[in-house]
Design a protein around this nucleic acid. Sequence first.
DNA 1: CAAGTGACGATGC
DNA 2: AGCATCGCCACTT
Length: 111
Amino acid sequence: MTKIPGETAYTAIYRVVRRIPAGRVATYGAVAAGAGLPGQARLVGYALHRCPQGQRIPWQRVVNARGMISRLPDPDAAAGQRVLLESEGIEFDARGAIDLARFGWHDAETR
DNA sequence: CAAGTGACGATGC
DNA sequence: AGCATCGCCACTT
């Protein structure tokens, strides 16, 4: 991952999230690692929390380590995210979790 | 400038 | 197995 001086961790995170292909999901930790911030999963969540719509970040493809959707004080938003992911081909189990072993995305280049 | 907070994760109990 | 706590870092008040 090319480290650009002056770039905040946020931008790096957004870039990684944007690289997540449809039909795949990445965990906060994986995104953090890909962004050059190993162990800083919180920063990823924080960055996505701001939800920069101007960059159209597919934040819905980022889930926690259990493959479940976090945040969601809004049950409506949760359902929307789930449906959106399902429409991309992602399958949820009875617990509402995603099988990371099959849908978990791992950066092949880790640039 | 100091303290609090947060879409998480790992560990302890 | 489920809950409580600490750690990590950036941003807000």
